[in-house]
Computed example of a mutant assay.
Amino acid sequence: MSLNSIFQYFVPKDKKFFPLFEQAGANLIEMAKLLNISVNSTNLEERKELSKKLEDLEHVGDNITHQIHLELGRNFITPFDREDIHALASSLDDVADFIHGASNRMQLYNVEQPTQPMIEITALILEATEHVAKALFELKDLKNIRNITDSCVRINSVENKADYIFDKAVADLFEYEKDAIALIKQKEVLSAMEDATDKCEDVANVLESILVKNA
């Protein structure tokens, strides 16, 4: 048994950070679901309402991040390195920001008909957030390292798929889209969506770092 494992044995069961991380994960799934509904809807008024709900959930995510930072200041003993807690909270907040950003760009640029690549990447965002939430749920018991590692691998796989769809979609835009304004609008929306999967991968990277330090 490593010294770190022995130390963890004597650390009181955390009742602050892990519940907050689980709330953040659940919030990301809800945001991804709303974005997924939005890109599959042809009702512009419905999409406007969904965008407003996404904005509200993004604020919920901000509040969770703020609460995690407050707890860092209040607690001398933390379940793992303070820097990792901060990095994990920040990376989760980034995911929420880019999911909201994708929805916001669709509204700002008046994207009336989401394209098939947008629909596909949005589905991948939802899949990635589900794996993120699963990993966060397992984080409170570092005995289940294999489950967390599996989620991280799946997140990386999803991000690779999103990269491929994004690159192909942008290539097709330059090849076939003759309207420069429409091209820019679509590329900006696709970019925000793909960035959301990138940020999920950042979460996976932080989780893997935590596993290495606490193995």
Rank of each mutant, 00 (worst) to 15 (best):
H69I: 13
L44W: 07
A89F: 01
P12E: 11
H86E: 15
E130C: 03
I165T: 10
T78Y: 04
L183N: 04
V170H: 05
S5E: 12
R74A: 10
M118F: 08
A96T: 07
D94V: 05
L28W: 02
Q116C: 00
F17D: 03
A196H: 06
G101W: 02
V111G: 01
I64N: 09
L70E: 13
S5Q: 11
V158M: 05
K199T: 07
A123G: 15
Y164N: 11
S91Q: 12
V189L: 06
N75Q: 15
T78M: 03
P114V: 12
H66S: 09
V39I: 11
Q113E: 08
S2R: 14
S157Y: 11
L34C: 05
F80M: 02
I165E: 01
E177V: 13
S38I: 04
T42G: 11
C200A: 09
N144S: 09
I37Y: 14
E49N: 15
V11Q: 11
C152R: 06
G61D: 08
V95I: 10
N156T: 14
P19C: 05
I148T: 07
L124N: 12
A169T: 14
I181F: 14
A182G: 03
L28M: 08
T197E: 03
D56T: 11
K185E: 11
I155L: 05
I119V: 13
L92F: 06
E177T: 11
I68P: 07
K199R: 15
A128G: 09
S41G: 09
D150F: 05
T197R: 01
A87P: 04
S2A: 02
L211Y: 03
C152K: 06
N110H: 12
V132N: 07
E188A: 08
D62C: 01
K16I: 12
D198E: 06
A180W: 04
L57S: 04
N43R: 03
K185P: 04
A102T: 04
M118I: 07
A162W: 10
F137S: 06
V95K: 02
F166Q: 09
I6H: 00
A169D: 13
V189C: 08
M193R: 02
T149I: 00
A24L: 06
D172E: 10
V60Q: 04
K134I: 00
E201L: 02
V158E: 05
M106I: 07
A96P: 00
Q67P: 00
G61A: 10
F98H: 06
K199F: 07
G101P: 04
F7D: 00
V153Q: 05
T65W: 00
L54K: 02
D93V: 12
Y164D: 11
V153C: 01
G61N: 09
E194A: 01
D202Q: 08
D81V: 04
D81T: 03
